[in-house]
Design a protein around this nucleic acid. Structure first.
Length: 312
DNA sequence: TCCCAGGTCCTAC
DNA sequence: GTAGGACCTGGG
């Protein structure tokens, strides 16, 4: 049930949702925490809508060209994956202390349904970068190539379209601090803008088909989408909850907390990345252990291992 | 100065 | 098939 009043305010109190955990969990990079009149808010841009979110409400501040405000409430409910039953998902996981602790500690963390193009570009930018640097690069790309959204507060920008980035030069892209990733960005933008890659169609396929196609369709002479980036796109935008992105933090987590999953796949090295073969084997082991919602388990564990590391 | 970051690609074997 | 190194850049 969606409730919306005349001011563009949408009541989201019916969704178990913690914006602090959700927006700092490394699945999205465009949300900023703002203190306004003593009230804590998150501000971001969703599919061309400038949005302000508190724990119980979402408000539309403005829209980019071509958007209709009446779409807003549907958009919010979809973006927050309101149909995901967190209780049911949590009950499907193994009853072991580390994961159960993470589920309790980060209660209200949801996996979002982001725009697939934005998600793909964001995770191409994430390659060998830390989260503040990723957010900085994405903001620069949006300011330079996105559309300005007029709001009552400070101006913000929509995420750049594939077409706008397909036309961008190396120097324009590099000026946004994306470094060597400029080639990957340009290539992905051209593939999507030309229609060679249809990201939406991937959502109709199974997880395995989607991942294979995503990697295969984007690969050319130069690409930049390996198994980890593909898993992030499938999980954080196409909502394939069987995805289990394995990054340096998750490898660290599995080595320390789930050594059985690791040893089973014969990787005793301490390398940051995996070969495709090992990645697949590790993913299969994680899926059989955590089950069909392993993407949620991954996200809670990711938060947990990072927080534990920083608090040492 | 060195190491690391939500990895991937290329080369040599 | 796989290990090892390179890669922009900023922060600790």
């Amino acid at each position: 049930m969606i409730r919306k009043d005349d001011s563009g305010d949408v009541d989201i109190s019916g969704i178990p949702f913690d914006p602090d955990y959700t927006f700092t969990s490394g699945q999205t990079f465009r949300w900023t925490r703002v203190l306004d009149g003593g009230q804590l808010q998150w501000r971001g841009v969703i599919n061309g809508f400038a949005v302000r979110i508190t724990k119980n409400r979402a408000q539309c501040l403005g829209t980019a060209e071509g958007r209709v405000e009446s779409d807003f409430s549907e958009l919010i409910y979809s973006y927050l994956s309101s149909k995901d039953d967190l209780k049911l998902i949590n009950e499907s996981f193994p009853r072991e202390p580390y994961l159960q602790g993470a589920l309790r500690e980060f209660d209200g963390l949801r996996i979002l349904k982001q725009d697939p193009w934005e998600c793909l570009l964001s995770f191409i930018c994430s390659i060998n970068k830390n989260i503040p640097s990723i957010a900085d690069a994405i903001e620069r790309l949006s300011v330079k190539f996105g559309k300005r959204i007029e709001t009552t507060g400070e101006a913000c920008f929509s995420f750049p379209t594939p077409r706008s980035l397909a036309k961008a030069s190396k120097s324009d892209l590099v000026s946004c601090k994306v470094g060597f990733r400029w080639r990957y960005i340009q290539h992905a933008a051209r593939q999507v803008a030309s229609g060679i890659v249809d990201l939406q169609s991937l959502s109709r396929r199974t997880y395995d088909e989607g991942r294979r196609d995503l990697i295969a369709e984007l690969s050319g002479k130069t690409f930049g989408v390996g198994p980890k980036v593909a898993d992030c796109v499938l999980l954080f935008s196409l909502h394939k909850l069987e995805a289990f992105p394995l990054d340096v933090w998750m490898l660290r987590c599995i080595r320390e907390k789930y050594p059985g999953l690791f040893e089973a796949n014969g990787d005793s090295s301490n390398r940051g990345s995996l070969t495709l073969r090992r990645y697949e084997a590790m993913h299969d082991a994680a899926m059989s252990y955590f089950g069909p919602y392993c993407g949620y388990a991954q996200q809670y564990l990711y938060m947990k291992v990072r927080r534990d590391s920083y608090s040492k």
